[in-house]
């Protein structure tokens, strides 16, 4: 209880000092077009970095794809069993389909447990700290697309 009051108070101070650019209002996302279940174009207009993408897939704070997917990342001990194994996925899906899957898998399957990594609204009771924010930035999504495309 005390925590919540403190948090509201702190936010008020931040707002009144004009520091807060993203704590309340939804952050702007890059525009993208979905066609036939795919997002053909890079969100940033540039290709991503597969090495960074691999790191994000491991990171418990950000991508954390390993939470649910088995991936060819042998140095990590625990791979999730919630989603399909991703090794070989680039042979099954196009780059645009993979991008759409990471951006918002609910477009393909509204009931999937997989989170949308590039969506910032339409959620229920998001913690204040994450309100209006997407889990990943556009360039992080592209890094993950680039890495996932190496899983042939």
């Amino acid at each position: 209880m005390g925590d919540r009051i403190l948090a509201v108070w702190a936010l008020g101070v931040v707002l009144s000092l004009g520091f807060s650019t993203n704590a309340t209002a939804a952050e702007k996302l890059m525009k993208f077009m979905v066609k036939d279940g795919a997002i053909a174009k890079s969100l940033t207009g540039k290709p991503g970095d597969a090495t960074k993408g691999r790191k994000l897939a491991i990171s418990r704070k950000q991508g954390n794809c390993l939470a649910c997917h088995k991936m060819p990342i042998p140095e990590q001990p625990f791979h999730g069993e919630v989603g399909p194994e991703l090794n070989g996925v680039a042979g099954r899906l196009s780059e645009g389909q993979i991008r759409a899957m990471i951006v918002n898998p609910k477009m393909a399957n509204p009931n999937t447990i997989m989170p949308a990594f590039y969506r910032n609204e339409g959620f229920t009771r998001v913690l204040k700290k994450f309100k209006g924010k997407a889990m990943l930035s556009a360039s992080q999504v592209e890094d993950l697309v680039a890495y996932t495309m190496t899983l042939k």
């Binding site: 418990r60 954390n64 390993l66 939470a67 649910c68 001990p77 625990f78 791979h79 999730g80 069993e81 919630v82 609910k106 447990i113 989170p115 949308a116 959620f123 229920t124 009771r125 998001v126 913690l127 994450f130 924010k133 889990m135």
Partner: peptide, 25 residues
């Protein structure tokens, strides 16, 4: 059954659909 939070998951997503599965460790 209501999905919640930025991760947009329901209790059922984890405890009905995935009971017995590992979520990382």
């Amino acid at each position: 059954d209501q999905k919640r939070g930025q991760l947009d998951m329901s209790c059922a997503n984890c405890h009905v659909d995935n009971a017995g599965n590992r979520i990382r460790a």
